[in-house]
Write a protein that binds this DNA or RNA. Structure first.
Lengths: 207, 207
DNA sequence: GTCTATATGCAGATAGAC
DNA sequence: GTCTATCTGCATATAGAC
């Protein structure tokens, strides 16, 4: 049997380059939106544009993978934050779990991950085929949030007349739209924005 | 002096075609996002793609005008709704004024106007030059909202520790993002969504 | 695996007839 | 004013050398 690099712990050169391309693509999509060009992605990854096609069959394939990884990243960070909270409490408070999820998602999108940020930014811009393929991932993340909300509703923490789907989508809008206006060089930190998001979504702007 | 059509009340043929193009562009951008093609816009307007250039110098010029008209439309509808409220009350309640503005903006974006909807959908996707030119319009609409918020804050209606800029941007996110998920053929009406938006932004999801 | 060079396709834009 | 025909430029994609 030939000694291949899969026998070692180290990822293959191909896998490492592929990762560099994905990182570069996430950064470019985050910054420039869906119309980011392959030449710019390639340059950021330190290769020529043509070389991308050794790793990805098409631009669409690359976009699809960024969307998937972006959602997976946000999901993982939110779930981890909520589970850490559960670990610290015997009784997990459904309201605090929701607040924790809101803060974690907002932070993921604002500064934790170019992938999560890119997903939030371009998900509304991708062509129908890619959007359709992405729907399954969205449903699974949405189901997780729906669970957080339903548990809170059942516990009597949320207002009774609330439509949970509308509430969830409005909350996502507030959180994901931060990618459009957050500016790290300005007055407001990501943490402050996340705090304000938690406050508005859960308690509203009014006293 | 030659009799020109500007002497009559009726808009010139050119003005009417131009309007048809703008209407078509608003509808296409709303539906397909920034990458909507000129051929599709032209087809919807009932002309050939080349004929667009008699009315607009470039695609960018058309996009810029849609953005401007979209924001102006939302602004006008919000202002009108707030002023009607003021007329019905001797004392205008700053909280109800805010609620009215939220409902009006959400309705403008959801079903009152393809222009307002298109603006909300593509404003985050346009290239830097167009975005920069649009900034002035955004500032003026933003100033109006800031005024609504500051008046409410001064009256003690809002929570004391609130950052009004963050609050405004989060609220816009919740409202504008509805363009991504609203589906007229589904369960939730635009009115129900607007109601939920008012509730979440002003009072929060929690009891 | 990545390079250079090139092909392909498409959307925006222009020219001139009508 | 709008049409048809055509040009141009650019981004994606391919081919073959290394």
């Amino acid at each position: 049997m030939v000694e291949t690099s899969s026998d070692t712990k180290r990822p293959t050169k191909s896998a490492r380059t592929r990762k560099r391309i994905l990182d570069a693509a996430a950064a470019e999509f985050r910054q420039a939106g869906y119309n980011a060009r392959l030449v710019d992605i390639a340059e950021r990854a330190g290769i020529q544009a043509g070389s991308l096609y050794y790793h990805f069959a098409s631009r669409e394939e690359l976009v699809a993978e960024i969307l998937q990884l972006g959602l997976a990243t946000a999901f993982a960070q939110v779930r981890q934050a909520v589970e850490e909270l559960d670990g610290s409490d015997i009784e997990s408070d459904p309201r605090r779990r929701l607040e924790t999820a809101i803060r974690a998602h907002t932070m993921a999108v604002l500064e934790q991950s170019d992938y999560a940020s890119a997903q939030a930014k371009i998900v509304g811009q991708v062509p129908p085929d890619i959007a359709k393929a992405h729907k399954a991932d969205q449903r699974s993340y949405g189901a997780y949030w729906n669970d957080l909300l339903e548990t809170a509703a059942t516990a009597g923490v949320l207002r009774a007349d609330l439509d949970l789907f509308a509430a969830r989508m409005l909350a996502f809008g507030a959180m994901n739209w931060t990618t459009e206006w957050f500016d790290p060089s300005r007055r407001l930190s990501a943490d402050q924005i996340a705090d304000t998001a938690v406050m508005m979504i859960m308690s509203g702007l009014a006293k």
